[in-house]
Amino acid sequence: MKIDQTNIDIIRELKQGKRSFKKIADKLEITENTVRSRVNKLQEEGVLEICGLVDPDMLPGHRVVIIGIKLSEMNLVEKGEEISRLRGVIHTNVVTGRFDLLIMVMFKKEFGLLEFYTEEIAKINGVRSVETFVVYKSYNLKVPYIF
């Protein structure tokens, strides 16, 4: 699918979340049907997903952690996909640098770092080492609520 400037403008307008297609159409000077059909096509193609996001700093008892993972194997994509399905994982990235993967994980009172390592990461073969970065304060971070 070709992403043109109109698609980008629509996506930018959807950043406000509950903005109506009519208001977007009026602002961009296109028809409401054009907005609707383009949004539907962007969703069908997997380019756009409309969902509610939360600021983890505003959720009592929740914490976000970034974890760097070194693997003993070079099947980065396969391990990245496997780790992305673990409980608490918000997103997984295959990266360059001293780690093979960087993941962002959300915790809550009943599911913390210890549980994540002993119940989730322990399931993954080929993890050589991990390094944890606790996020004390984030800016502009909005994530899907996964619990």
Results as ranks from 00 to 15, higher is better:
91 H>L: 10
80 G>Y: 00
17 G>A: 07
44 E>Y: 00
60 P>Q: 15
120 E>I: 06
49 E>Q: 07
32 E>A: 10
42 L>C: 06
87 R>N: 06
88 G>F: 07
19 R>V: 15
110 E>H: 04
85 R>F: 04
11 I>G: 00
82 E>W: 05
102 L>E: 12
37 S>W: 11
46 G>R: 11
135 V>I: 13
132 T>V: 14
47 V>H: 11
109 K>D: 09
48 L>Y: 02
124 I>N: 01
23 K>S: 15
34 T>H: 01
85 R>A: 14
117 Y>L: 15
27 K>M: 12
26 D>T: 14
27 K>G: 11
34 T>M: 11
121 I>D: 02
25 A>Y: 05
143 V>H: 01
136 Y>G: 14
78 E>H: 05
83 I>Q: 02
123 K>N: 00
12 R>I: 15
94 V>H: 03
7 N>T: 04
1 M>W: 05
128 R>M: 13
14 L>H: 06
64 V>T: 13
28 L>R: 04
74 M>P: 14
35 V>M: 01
43 Q>H: 00
122 A>T: 14
104 M>P: 02
79 K>W: 01
59 L>C: 05
19 R>F: 11
45 E>H: 01
73 E>F: 08
43 Q>M: 08
69 I>D: 08
141 L>C: 10
50 I>D: 01
11 I>E: 02
55 D>R: 06
52 G>E: 10
7 N>D: 15
47 V>K: 08
17 G>Y: 01
133 F>H: 13
135 V>G: 01
26 D>V: 12
28 L>I: 00
92 T>F: 03
26 D>F: 10
2 K>R: 12
49 E>Y: 02
102 L>T: 14
41 K>H: 05
145 Y>N: 11
56 P>T: 05
147 F>R: 12
60 P>M: 14
128 R>W: 07
52 G>Y: 03
54 V>C: 08
96 T>I: 09
107 F>V: 03
39 V>M: 04
89 V>E: 00
122 A>H: 10
51 C>D: 07
126 G>I: 01
46 G>V: 00
88 G>Q: 03
77 V>W: 09
34 T>V: 07
9 D>R: 07
85 R>Q: 13
139 Y>P: 06
75 N>E: 15
54 V>Y: 05
68 G>R: 03
93 N>K: 12
104 M>R: 10
71 L>W: 04
49 E>M: 01
54 V>G: 05
33 N>A: 15
27 K>Y: 06
103 I>A: 11
146 I>D: 06
16 Q>C: 09
22 K>N: 02
109 K>T: 15
123 K>P: 00
19 R>H: 07
75 N>C: 02
70 K>F: 03
48 L>E: 00
40 N>V: 03
86 L>W: 03
139 Y>S: 10
85 R>S: 07
143 V>N: 00
145 Y>T: 09
113 L>V: 13
